[in-house]
Design a protein around this nucleic acid. Structure first.
Lengths: 203, 203
DNA sequence: CCGATTACGAAACGACCGTATCGAAAAGGA
DNA sequence: TCCTTTTCGATACGGTCGTTTCGTAATCGG
């Protein structure tokens, strides 16, 4: 049944390439993240690398994807606190794409750069697009389920749209990272959730 | 006083290059948008082109920037309607970056691609980043001023943060284009504004 | 053991980006 | 007119991406 013929792949190269690629990506940034350079440091031929990932974007996505662990959303009965915590988790995952390099110049922050390149890569390659979208859909579904549970208990308005709420919250998060470039902390997440909860109309 | 010495620049080349670049960008997409190709079609040397725009990204930004005309926000007394109209204008500007090419295959939608590449370019080059950020700041300031005017009249809650509201609305807009890839129409803008107005807490 | 199959490394290639160099052209100033 | 300054076109270059080719190595099936 096992039709694996021919020379087997070196079981170590995948991990070795990904490790080197991760180092280069976080230390040098996306533009300096070079396929030839990664291959040279990893000690493999470029063809070996391209046999595993079709483009440089795919390799970068594979690296970043490994760093995005599963995100949980709790149900403590306090929807506000649970949402804030959820957004803080996402923000932490984004901040983790910052320069892991030990110190030196903080002036060139690459956290926005990596996420921006990820978005661009998703727009360039359809398969990466669906990949990224699947990751986001999972998280969105989690949050939506949590909100709907709260709605069934009467914690939120019955005519509110959970999907829309998630769009607002997550949207503001990524808008801040990609466009305005401002940092994201728990304080901002709290403001966002509170604003969405209260609405703008006078009561 | 006019210290312009030496051979003057051809007054037509700027416009000619921008025109050709715009055609290529909208018809072929960003990846197929080639400096050499643009230079060849425009009938200029590549050096002539690089004397005006330092990188391919800068040329693309110049093209897209020309297509983003000024956006107005009305004050009809109805904040909800004015905000919806404002967002519809932004959405229209984004949709205008779609394939202006007459017809053919709609399957590869490049509207998300161009905006995504714009965001990535802003992350790559600091000057483009400030350029784009200035454009957004103008629009944000407009909307914030409009909201604050409404707040002074008691149309919205006095403890609400106009900046946060704009972040929510604009964030959801760009989140939709960049991440989920879903289209943006006036209906969605209406839903967003209504949701932000009502809040999620039961009254 | 032998052929088929697959992985690997080395090298070259075309396309593209951005830079550098050079000579010619077009203007102003002396 | 001659010199300086700036633009322009042509060409070549190094770096990078992704592909192709080729010879070699490793494993399986018969």
């Amino acid at each position: 049944m096992n039709a694996r013929r021919g020379r087997p792949r070196d079981p170590d190269t995948d991990a070795r390439i990904l490790r080197v690629a991760g180092e280069q990506l976080l230390e040098r940034g996306y533009t300096a993240f070079t396929v030839d350079h990664v291959a040279e440091i990893a000690g493999v031929a470029k063809t070996t690398l391209y046999r595993r990932w079709p483009t440089r974007d795919h390799l970068a996505i594979a690296v970043i994807g490994r760093g995005q662990e599963e995100i949980e959303i709790a149900d403590t009965g306090d929807l506000r606190a649970d949402l804030i915590d959820f957004m803080a988790q996402i923000a932490a995952g984004l901040n983790r794409t910052r320069r892991a390099g030990r110190g030196a110049n903080d002036q060139d922050d690459q956290s926005a750069g990596l996420v921006a390149e990820l978005v661009a890569a998703a727009a360039r390659h359809a398969d990466i697009g669906t990949l990224v979208r699947d990751l986001f859909d999972k998280r969105i579904a989690l949050a939506v389920a949590r909100i709907e549970a709260a709605r069934r208990r009467g914690e939120v308005r019955s005519d509110s749209d959970p999907h829309l709420l998630v769009d607002q919250l997550a949207g503001a998060l990524y808008y801040r990272i990609l466009i305005t470039g401002k940092p994201i902390d728990r304080r901002y997440a709290t403001h966002l959730v509170d604003a969405a909860f209260a609405g703008v109309l006078p009561r």
